[in-house]
Every structure is written in structure tokens, then in C-alpha cells.
Simulated assay, not measured.
Amino acid sequence: MDGRVRARLLRAAAAAAMAVALPAAGAGTLGALSGCAAVAQGAAEPAPALLDVVGKPADQAGRILRAAGYRVAFVGEHGDPVSASPARLVVRQDPAGGTGLGRGRLVTLGLGAAG
């Protein structure tokens, strides 16, 4: 598609969005115009709340977080990388459970000593 055709299509789409979003005369035009900006730019969705896996076995916690779309790293008591094991429990989580965190982000799980 050539650049002029693309530009025309974009202008037409923007005009259509403005026509749908604009209120009747005298019905609060300023608020409607700010709404048009959100439509044109795409409203960002809030990040989902991160699950709290403290107290769970490491292997189970890793599966839960990966299934929710996060990357997971396991560290030992001194911050050294360790592997997940059902014998080790999650004793700390960074970021903490309940924090808004976008999918694909890294969650670090601190594991207690193997029992």
C-alpha cells in the first residue's frame, strides 16, 4: 500500500473515531476530546496482580507462575541460583504477591534450605 493511501485511511479512521466519541453540542466537549485521545492511542490495561506463592514447594510455585505468564528465577539463602525442588519451600518472593506485574516479567523466588 502506498504512503498516500495509508495516510488517507489513517485520517479517515481518526475522523470516524472522533465522530463516534464527540457528544451532542454543549454536552462537555473537553471530556469527550480527552476520551478521543485515549481511543486514538489505545488505553493501557492495568497489570494483573502477581500471585503469592510464599510457603509453596518450589517446583509447584514455579509451575503456577509460569502458567500465569511470568519468568521465574530461584535463589538460595545467599542469593545464589538454585534449582527448584519439591523439598524446598518458597520463603520470599520479589516482587511480592499482589503487586501489579505485567506478564513476561521476572519473578525471583527465594528458597529455604532443603528439608
Results as ranks from 00 to 15, higher is better:
A44I: 03
A27M: 12
A114C: 00
P48N: 09
A96N: 00
G55L: 02
A14T: 10
A7I: 09
L22G: 02
V39I: 13
V39A: 10
R4T: 09
V90S: 04
V5D: 13
V91I: 14
P23W: 01
V107W: 00
A67Y: 09
D80L: 14
S83H: 04
A49H: 08
F74Y: 05
G110C: 11
I64Q: 11
L50A: 03
A73F: 11
A27S: 10
G100P: 15
L51I: 05
D2A: 04
P46K: 09
V54H: 04
L65R: 00
T29R: 08
P81G: 07
G79R: 03
V5W: 05
G62H: 07
L22T: 08
F74D: 06
G79N: 12
L9S: 10
L50E: 06
G112Q: 11
D80F: 10
G104T: 00
S85R: 12
G31S: 15
A14F: 06
V39L: 15
G112F: 03
A67H: 07
P46I: 11
R8P: 04
G76R: 06
P81I: 03
A12F: 04
A32T: 01
G112M: 11
G42W: 00
G102S: 14
A25Y: 11
Q60N: 03
R4D: 11
F74A: 12
M1D: 11
V20G: 04
H78S: 09
L51C: 06
R88V: 00
A13G: 10
R103H: 07
V90F: 06
L33K: 02
A19T: 13
A114Q: 03
L89N: 12
A43D: 07
G102R: 13
T29I: 12
D94Q: 14
V75H: 04
A84F: 01
V72A: 10
L89S: 11
L109K: 05
A12D: 13
R92I: 01
I64P: 00
L109A: 02
V82G: 10
E45Q: 08
A15S: 13
E45Y: 03
I64W: 11
R6H: 14
L109G: 09
Y70V: 10
T108M: 08
G42E: 00
L101W: 02
A27D: 06
A37S: 14
L9W: 08
V75Y: 02
G112E: 08
G76P: 02
G35W: 04
V54Y: 03
A67S: 14
R8V: 14
E77Y: 00
G110R: 09
P23E: 01
G62P: 07
P48A: 05
R71A: 15
V72E: 10
I64K: 06
V75M: 03
A7E: 15
A114P: 03
G102K: 08
L33H: 02
G3N: 15
A17I: 09
D52K: 13
G110I: 02
P57Q: 07
P95Y: 00
V39G: 07
L111G: 08
R71K: 15
A15F: 10
V91W: 03
A32R: 06
L30C: 00
G26K: 08
A24Y: 06
R66D: 06
L65V: 09
A73W: 01
A21S: 08
P23L: 09
